[in-house]
């Protein structure tokens, strides 16, 4: 049962198409399987439709309709690349793997899949900016609760947490961070340049 959802603010930005590519992949991973958030997203899209209906018109070129009618039977332009593409996975620690997603990054944001074995505790950290997490497999627990498959975690710069993988399977998450992590303990700080996150 999904208990952690994206905020309404985040779902609205998702429906409005104003999230960065990396952020929207993580929200999409949650929304696809969450009827509640699909409903909120549909509502936000309906609101977008109402705003569009209320837009003042901007004049199109005089021959715009003629051009459109002339192009109407041409085949659709071939689509752009499909879905999310991942790069090579890298080993971080025993059982811990990071697989970067290929995105058109804004600023210092990153998108990656993180595989962490059962029972593993990650270094305590905070973030520069926001962090979105969608749990794809297994579960983890941190100060804000238990996150199982389908859950969505949303943290901002003021949150400082230490996730621990629970249960008897590895935990797999799709993670987007707006800026670098700040490690809160000496080992983490030592490893950070090498972790690259």
């Amino acid at each position: 049962m999904t208990t952690h959802h994206p905020s309404e603010l985040t779902l609205t930005a998702f429906a409005a198409g104003t999230l960065s590519e990396g952020a929207s992949h993580v929200v999409a991973a949650h929304v696809v399987g969450c009827p509640h958030c699909r409903e909120v997203t549909a509502m936000a899209e309906a609101t977008g439709g109402a705003l569009l209906d209320d837009m003042p018109p901007t004049e199109m070129a005089a021959d715009a309709l003629e051009l459109a009618l002339a192009r109407i039977d041409r085949p659709a332009p071939h689509g752009t690349s499909a879905g999310l593409v991942f790069g090579r996975r890298r080993w971080l620690a025993p059982g811990v793997w990071i697989t970067p997603g290929k995105i058109a990054a804004r600023g210092r944001e990153q998108l990656y899949r993180l595989d962490v074995p059962q029972g593993r505790r990650l270094p305590r950290h905070s973030h520069e900016g926001r962090e979105f997490v969608a749990v794809l497999q297994g579960c983890f627990v941190d100060e804000s609760g238990l996150y199982a498959v389908g859950d969505f975690g949303e943290a901002d710069a003021s949150d400082d947490h230490q996730p621990t993988v629970q249960g008897d399977t590895p935990c797999v998450c799709l993670i987007w961070t707006e800026g670098p992590l700040h490690m809160r303990d000496p080992i983490g700080r030592l490893l950070q340049p090498w972790l690259g996150i």
Partner: peptide, 20 residues
């Protein structure tokens, strides 16, 4: 309006980041 909005939004997003 909502349906056309999603089409326009996707084109706008796509144009912005040149990805799906």
């Amino acid at each position: 309006g909502a349906w056309i909005f999603t089409i326009a939004r996707n084109l706008g997003v796509d144009d912005h980041r040149r990805a799906r």
